[in-house]
Design a protein around this nucleic acid. Sequence first.
RNA 1: GGGCGCUUAGCUCAGUUGGUUAGAGCGUCUGGUUUACACCCAGAAGGUCAUAGGUUCGACUCCUAUAGCGCCCACCA
Length: 908
Amino acid sequence: MSIEIESAYEAKKYEDKIYKKWEESGAFTPKVNKDKEPYTISMPPPNATGVLHLGHSVMLALEDIMIRQKRMDGFSSLWLPGTDHAAIATQNVVEKELRKKGMKNPRKELGREKLIAEIRDFAEKSKDRIRNQVRKMGASCDWTREKYTLDDNMNHAVNTFFKYMYEDGLIYKGGRIVNWDPNMQTTVADDEIEYKEETTKFYYFQYGPVVIGTSRPETKFLDKVIVVHPKDKRYKDIIGKEFELEWIEGKIKAKVIADECIDMKLGTGAMTITPAHSLVDFELSQKHGLEVEQIIDFDGKIRKEVSKEFGGMPIEEARQKIVETLDKKGLVVKIDEEYIHNVSTNYRGKGVIEPQVMKQWFIDVNKKIIDWKGKKLSIKEVLQDTVRSKMISIIPKRFEKTYFHWIDNLRDWCISRQIWWGHQIPIWYKVTEEQYKAFNRKKDASSLALTILGVDGETKFGTEKPEGDYWIQDPDTLDTWFSSSLWTFATLGWPEKTEELKYYHPTDVLETGYDILFFWVARMILASTYALRRDGLAEEDTIPFKTVYLHGLIRDRNGKKMSKTNPETCIDPLDMIKEYGADALRLSLVIGSTPGNDMRLFEEKVAGYRNFINKIWNGSRFALMNVNKEDLEKEFEKGMIKSHADKWILTKLQNLIKEVDEDFAKHRFSDAGTKIYDFIWGQYCDWYLEISKGIHKNPAVLLFVLRNSLKLLHPFTPFVTEKLWELLGEKELLINAQWPKYDKSLVFEEEEYETKLIQQVITKIRSIRAELKVEAGKKIHAIVYGGKYTKILEDKREAIMRLARLESLDITEKGKKIPAAKAAFIEKIELYLPLKDLIDPEKETKRLDKEIEKKSSFIKTLEAKLGNEGYLKNAPKELIKNEKLRLKQEKENLEKLTEQKTSVLSTK
RNA sequence: GGGCGCUUAGCUCAGUUGGUUAGAGCGUCUGGUUUACACCCAGAAGGUCAUAGGUUCGACUCCUAUAGCGCCCACCA
């Protein structure tokens, strides 16, 4: 059959067209279908801030593999895509851009409405770019159901969820130490803090009866409490007592309390508490009911109310002056000049963070409010139970430990953020007319303004302004993870009780990088179980997903994290796709990577898999060149099996199907991919196609195996397989084809060994060269390996002759066959196959000896075990049965080994 | 400081409940174009599985310790 196909696959030429075909065919859009089982993956929504990186590519590749395989396997396979508004990240990017354009303070200059509009524009553009990139990867996600975390229905879900929690008393407003950046006048999330090592001075001051150490004397104005460890002998006598002492601005009174959090070995073992400007101190003060007084204002200066002398001074200046003052008073004990200290800074500005106390919204994780398996449990407890009771399993398993560890240390979740890009908190405050006017005058009002205005009147939940005058909505927005925690169920229509929600939820797999296990994965479990349980669903239906599959991070060839700031090592997935094709990129990201482990990626790796793609292309090309139209149209039947080679490749194929199914069930995609790769390249192309060149040519099997190979490979490399499927004359798209089913009747185990011999002989034939020097008349001998047994086949002249009759062995010169040369060739083959070329008897004997020894000792132990009456009485029956069976098997194996040894010895 | 992980061929990595001779790709070397593919084919070299103990008939695999590397969390008053 003559089909014009180029000898190298050009991905660029086909990929976009194929994607379009899939999308238009509706293959991506599954329907609620009671006759089918659902299979769902919610795509982790990429941030709508920029471009996709390789991390996204891994995610897309892995999820697409799962989705495609299930789709072919007859599931209603839904992959729901979307994007995240990525609150802080997006607003930051846009503000930065605006600043580049010369705007000094975008929030002040534009005001809320206009800035949000700017950000929205930017996000929309990003979304388009992301959609395009996702398509380029070949992701078969359902675009008709695409969602965005700021969509109206998502906002509705967010508000409903907030309302649930507000009504249940799970959301409360409380003081909290936040990371305040006085430069940028904003709070900074914990994970946006960068610790910088700095050498500063460390001061020791006499503070009444104790010496305290500090690197920040300027915060120590109002310290009135000394804390020591309860077991510290040095301070045993002063605990609980009150002292009058000389301090920065005259005499003050201070008392001594004890707390176990104090490290006796650190410094002097005594410290004073500054509740308003240190997290630890703040928590201590809450624990002991101490007063919290602000010392440093939001501009980073000493508050005027605190000190007449130092009020209004920036902290650096105040620090120096205060030390001078204390020194004059003789209170400086010593100064350590070389104190190495971690300073927290905002990684976006470079501003030094000043911890401040501010009112924030929190989710209470300890209130026992969820009806769970007959008990009232807290959020924390439900989070633990879902994983502990195996409702949710995490791959790799070790991350379950990490997960529990995180929950054990979980504190109330602060959900309010002082930015505008996001879901505004649906809370309204009743204020005075004066406050109302003052608030509206400030264009960049955040919750800081509320704090400063001292708002503390009536508070109401609502998405709309309550009736009456002077209501202000909380200007803050919700943490971006608050909305994305609803992702799995809100994208399916929640809070409406839709058919889809019922059918596709809980989703099956949540596949993402391990770096957001806490940020996102745990919070999704939190949101889903709480909200759906409150809706009255059964516990097992409230989890967001059954399996969490965590992939590793992609690193460059030196093991460094890829970052945009380092373009030398940073690989853009689109560049790789352009150069090598999406299929090659997908394979290079999936094969050889294991869950939870980071992997390195570099161009040569992608190039290697491109070679494989080309191999399939050419293997198929060869097949097409060797079959005719009727062959293509014929259905495969068992009666078409002709040779040992047929049986051999069919057996291999069936074994492959079985193993790949097992691997998929265990989420071992790398293994599955490797096996398919090996089969296609190592078995089908290298052996079966070679054999097909000769008398074993059998189009029926050739095509049957090829078609099944393409099916198996399709989830991994969808584009090239789809194209080849079309070239094979198939009318239906491969994306919708039926996944291969394991068929035991196509397994011919006993055939394996002889066929293996044929392979070895082919190898030899290929490598035979004129310089062969073998004594004539030598007996032909061959050892053939296969599976668990080693067989020696003597005098397999017949098999070899059969090979020698292969047409491919015709020796030609200028297109003319030369029978004499062929005859000579055959003669040489016969001479070339003495045993020693296939196996070294010395080595083989040694190996067998070792093996026999091992087996014997094992058998001995087993016999002893099974001869022990006590053991027989106490051990489980099942175990004993197994062991008896094993003993029998091992004895048989030993016999075989001994036989083998004898025959090897006889060949010497 | 607390937790987790990694260490297997020159490089990048697989290795499933412990069980045949520890594998692959790239790279290196040798040889090869007889009707798919040089993005190819055949073959070779290359490993005391980080180190030291232990458990076991048997350990890359389980346990303990040590070293080096990495990650996460907390944070130094």
